[in-house]
């Protein structure tokens, strides 16, 4: 159970970083931390104490394996995260070109 709480704390750290930091890059890092906390949560769901890696091999019997399904799902989720992150960084670089700052407080042309 405690490991899930640690996972939740990681999530909270990411959320804190996203909400409080004013630098765009730090916000992106915060979002990344949140995402990986959820990924970690998925992996923990499939974890089994003293379990084996879920790889089919000639010498290995299928006993006490870790659940491979969450791992497969998380691979997909990581790929999606990669895409979002790349887009986000690209937009941030462009934003820097326009505004010459990473401070969210000064990027405020849209209002109302």
């Amino acid at each position: 159970m405690s490991i899930y709480i640690l996972c939740l704390i990681l999530f909270a750290v990411g959320l804190y970083c996203l909400l409080v930091k004013r630098n765009l890059i730090k916000k992106i890092v915060g979002l990344g931390i949140m995402e990986y906390a959820v990924n970690l949560f998925f992996i923990l769901l499939g974890y089994r104490h003293n379990g084996q890696a879920p790889i089919l091999d000639k010498e290995q019997a299928i006993v006490n394996m870790v659940d491979p399904l969450p791992q497969a799902l998380i691979l997909t989720s990581i790929v999606i995260g990669l895409g979002v992150m790349a887009l986000m960084v690209a937009i941030t670089v462009r934003l820097y070109e326009k505004y010459r700052t990473f401070d969210i407080g000064e990027i405020r042309r849209l209002k109302g």
């Binding site: 790929v79 990669l82 790349a86 960084v89 690209a90 670089v93 462009r94 820097y96 070109e97 010459r100």
Partner: peptide, 19 residues
């Protein structure tokens, strides 16, 4: 797809120069 895509992302980000 992944190899070319990742390399394209890298080029695109490297090609964007700061002002």
């Amino acid at each position: 797809k992944v190899g070319a895509g990742l390399f394209a992302i890298f080029i695109a980000l490297a090609a964007m120069r700061m002002p």
